[in-house]
């Protein structure tokens, strides 16, 4: 009976096993040299977690993020996303995963400059094969939800940094992914806006159960997360769950 009373552990979303990544570079004499970035990373992330990855620049945190987001491939080791081995997927399947299962938020927002806020949010829907009309309708609903409804026809450069990042987050969430990857999402924002964005993340995590992996180098931003992973020179040096926050 006691087993039943315990909360069932959340299913595993991400499992990484002895993952290595090194970049091939050519030195001046033309010889190929290998520049290792990640060493033997093993990591398990459950659904619904909110994780912050910290580390100095060059610690490999962005590389890890790119591999988690299926934008880059590891040199060795395995990566299972929702139980599927990412190494076995072809480029089409990877594109599908990025479209359906993962949402990206970047430090520099990475909105398409020539498109309005509404159209930017609609692109992942269009890539998913949803018609233009329906895509725009859903995007409008999303914009209204984040309170930027009246900015639908604004181009990114007509929006403030915080507004742009909220549009970017809307774009990341439009296909209702399980995983949200955020690479220094507050890096270009002022303190107040950063706080607002982090509050939004926390709400998304708590209310909708979206798994969030966040890269930051600011300690106070990292405090919003439930688990902190610290990288140093390509190795995990700290991996602890905070009891509460």
């Amino acid at each position: 009976m006691s087993v039943v009373n315990q909360p069932a552990p959340n299913p595993i979303l991400i499992q990484i096993d002895r993952l290595c990544k090194s970049y091939e570079l050519t030195d001046r004499s033309g010889e190929l040299i290998s520049q290792p970035v990640l060493f033997d990373i093993s990591l398990t992330i459950n659904q619904g977690e909110f994780i912050a990855i910290m580390g100095h620049s060059g610690s490999g945190k962005s590389t890890l993020m790119n591999i988690l987001g299926c934008l880059d491939t590891p040199t060795s080791g395995n990566y299972w996303l929702s139980g599927r081995n990412v190494a076995t997927m072809n480029s089409n399947e990877l594109a599908h995963v990025r479209n359906q299962n993962i949402g990206f938020v970047f430090q520099s927002f990475n909105l398409l400059k020539r498109m309005t806020a509404l159209e930017n949010i609609a692109i992942p829907l269009l890539y998913a094969g949803i018609g233009r009309k329906e895509s725009l309708k859903r995007s409008q609903a999303m914009l209204d939800l984040i309170g930027l409804g009246k900015y639908r026809d604004h181009l990114p450069n007509q929006l403030s940094g915080g507004q742009q990042q909220r549009v970017a987050i809307s774009r990341a969430l439009i296909n209702q992914p399980q995983l949200l990857l955020a690479d220094e999402p507050t890096g270009n924002l002022d303190t107040q806006t950063s706080h607002d964005i982090m509050t939004l993340f926390t709400q998304l995590n708590r209310n909708q159960g979206i798994t969030i992996v966040l890269i930051t180098h600011e300690e106070d931003i990292a405090t919003h997360a439930q688990r902190l992973i610290r990288l140093k020179d390509g190795r995990i040096v700290q991996n602890e769950v905070k009891l509460s926050n």
């Binding site: 990025r98 692109i123 998913a128 296909n175």
Partner: peptide
């Protein structure tokens, strides 16, 4: 190039 990267990150396939 950067635009292509963004599009790929949000799910554009090779074909698209």
């Amino acid at each position: 190039t950067r635009e292509i990267g963004i599009r790929m990150a949000i799910g554009a396939s090779y074909r698209i």
